[in-house]
């Protein structure tokens, strides 16, 4: 559930199809820089109504999914 929504929000940000995003990919592999990451985190916070701490540990899509799963 969280995974699908995260990928959907990422796909919307990148303006691509959700199928093009694999959870094991890093933000770097998705061609997203540190400021893209911040903006995506802001969009995720809004969508899930949570507060996410932005740390160096959030490297892959899976890292973000796991961080959100702990909060919802």
């Amino acid at each position: 559930m969280v995974k699908e929504k995260v990928i959907e929000i990422l796909a919307e940000y990148k303006d691509c199809a959700p199928e093009e995003i694999d959870a094991s990919q890093s933000f770097e592999e998705l061609k997203l820089d540190s400021l893209d990451t911040v903006e995506i985190v802001m969009n995720l916070e809004e969508a899930f109504d949570i507060e996410l701490k932005i740390t160096e540990d959030l490297k892959t899509v899976q890292d973000v999914i796991e961080a959100i799963e702990k909060l919802v």
Binding site: S34, L35, E39, V41, M42
Partner: peptide
């Protein structure tokens, strides 16, 4: 802290 300021600034 660029990322914190970015988030603060946009909101």
């Amino acid at each position: 802290d660029g990322r914190e300021i970015y988030r603060f600034a946009v909101s």
